[in-house]
């Protein structure tokens, strides 16, 4: 176990900011802040009617971290350099979040906080699947 209290504190502060972002989107725009739904509605055109709002959200999401880098120092995502794993993972995340109608932000943050059964069930299944695949791929197959 990694015992690093500053990581936890930054995690909590960042978490509060993420929840605050969801609160703004809900109370100002009347919408559930789900990253996969906001982007997915543009990709499959189901959310075309609200394209400007979606694109504005994504612009903020991409640009603000970019602008923060000079202040907070460079960040590294440490994403695997196995391109096959990256493509497979991306496809799974894209298909899965759209079938389930939500991801970590929509089902996890926004769903659990209003005790939505769907949000809780989704979170249980993606955590279990994520844990099993991660452990299998790292400790058994050794591909990540």
């Amino acid at each position: 176990m990694i015992l690093n209290p500053t990581d936890w504190l930054w995690g909590l502060i960042g978490g509060l900011m993420i929840g605050g972002a969801g609160a703004v989107f809900l109370l100002a725009n009347g919408r559930v802040m789900g990253a996969s739904g906001i982007l997915g509605g543009l990709v499959d055109r189901s959310g075309w009617a609200t394209w400007a709002e979606r694109l504005s959200f994504i612009a903020g999401l991409v640009l603000v971290p970019a602008l923060m880098l000079p202040l907070f120092g460079p960040r590294e995502t440490h994403v695997t350099d196995n391109i096959g794993v990256i493509v497979a993972a991306g496809l799974l995340v894209g298909i899965g979040t759209r079938l389930a109608n939500g991801c970590t932000s929509g089902h996890g943050v926004c769903g659990i906080s209003r005790f939505s059964l769907r949000g809780i069930v989704a979170t249980v299944f993606y955590l279990l699947a994520g844990g099993m695949i991660m452990v299998a791929a790292r400790h058994w197959l050794g591909i990540i």
Binding site: L92, V93, A122, Y126, L128, A129, G130, I133
Partner: peptide, 10 residues
């Protein structure tokens, strides 16, 4: 969907 998403996420 959640199982597939979780797999990709992991």
């Amino acid at each position: 969907g959640s199982v597939l998403f979780g797999a990709g996420w992991g």
